[in-house]
């Protein structure tokens, strides 16, 4: 079935059930809003950066003296090559850069094959919508990754953060401790008790498989037929069924920032991770949402850390 407009669903559902239509975007009560800016570097100096935005505009931004820059490791502005794709956290009306992540990628999926002796080449299945990806684990990172991914074997899950370099995806940091079960044997959700939970706690992660500057999230608990996703509807967190287009209120428990975000895609791989986030206190188990990088940053998340604890409710 075609989706005429997923945003329209919100209006129609609200009309039928007589509820208010939620408004996507950050909650005004969350303090000074953060803005995520993406682009390609045209020129960079120690204090100033010129980028080309996805819509073709050119922007000049000031690099704050306290800004940190990540490209596989902490680097200085001079280390950023022209042409690098950056995503930044900015303040002051998108003028001052506080954090820069250059060429960052996140590789999340089920391992299909592992080859190589020194540098490992891992092929992953990243869900029906995202297809397959091949990543290279350079020899210097294998120890660090294997400590958190002891079962680097087909059928197990993989989640790492790395960079894209010369057309190759390099996995450098583990984004989680690998779940101990195979991807197709997700533990069942704890028994639910009748009665609606107003809010659900769990982990939010991010994925690089969203469009640039897209604000939205992937949610695991969708009806398979509705989302055209044969792997949806799996989660160990006891989530309610929602639809593409539903608006969720996401509250970052670490920074206390809140935003209303629409479900834009099916989070079938995220639902298979029954892990916890230990970013600020230990979260409930289970990934409940996978955010687009821009939304993740605007809720105060650090891309390199890979997750934060959230509470979600219906927006």
């Amino acid at each position: 079935m075609a989706y005429p407009s997923i945003e329209r669903r919100r209006v129609l559902a609200a009309a039928a059930l007589g509820r208010e239509v939620g408004v996507p975007g950050p909650d005004p009560g969350s303090g000074d809003p953060l803005h995520a800016v993406t682009g390609t570097i045209l020129d960079v100096s120690p204090h100033l950066m010129t980028i080309e935005r996805p819509d073709g505009r050119t922007d000049r931004l000031i690099i704050a003296p306290w800004a940190t820059i990540w490209r596989g490791a902490e680097v200085t502005p001079a280390d950023l090559p022209v042409g690098a794709r950056v995503i930044m956290r900015t303040s002051r009306e998108r003028k001052v850069v506080e954090r820069v992540w250059a060429d960052i990628v996140r590789i999340t999926g089920t391992i299909l094959s592992v080859e190589g002796r020194k540098d490992l080449v891992v092929e992953l299945h990243c869900g029906p919508h995202r297809g397959r990806r091949t990543v290279v684990i350079p020899y210097r990172a294998t120890g660090r990754l294997q400590v958190r991914h002891p079962q680097l074997e087909p059928g197990y899950l993989f989640d790492a953060i790395g960079i894209r370099q010369d057309g190759t995806t390099l996995a450098l940091l583990p984004a989680t401790s690998q779940p101990t079960y195979p991807a197709r044997a997700v533990p069942p959700a704890p028994p639910a008790y009748a009665g609606v939970q107003p809010r659900i706690s769990g982990t939010a992660t991010w994925s690089d498989a969203f469009d640039e500057e897209e604000r939205g999230l992937a949610y695991p608990m969708l009806e398979r037929a509705d989302a055209a996703c044969p792997d949806a509807g799996v989660s160990c967190a006891g989530l309610p069924y929602l639809a593409l287009g539903s608006l969720l209120q996401i509250r970052n428990s670490c920074t206390d920032r809140t935003a209303n975000l629409p479900i834009v895609t099916c989070g079938c791989v995220a639902g298979r991770f029954c892990d916890r986030c230990v970013e600020c206190g230990t979260s409930e188990r289970g990934r409940i949402v996978e955010l687009s990088p821009s939304s993740y940053i605007e809720l105060g998340g650090e891309l390199v850390k890979g997750c934060f604890n959230v509470q979600i409710g219906l927006g």
């Binding site: 079935m1 989706y3 005429p4 669903r9 059930l17 009806e223 509705d226 639809a243 219906l314």
Partner: peptide, 14 residues
């Protein structure tokens, strides 16, 4: 219907 989806305990048809 030209669109249909399930949200919580309701199924919507348009």
């Amino acid at each position: 219907p030209y669109d249909s989806w399930r949200e919580l305990c309701w199924r919507f048809f348009v």
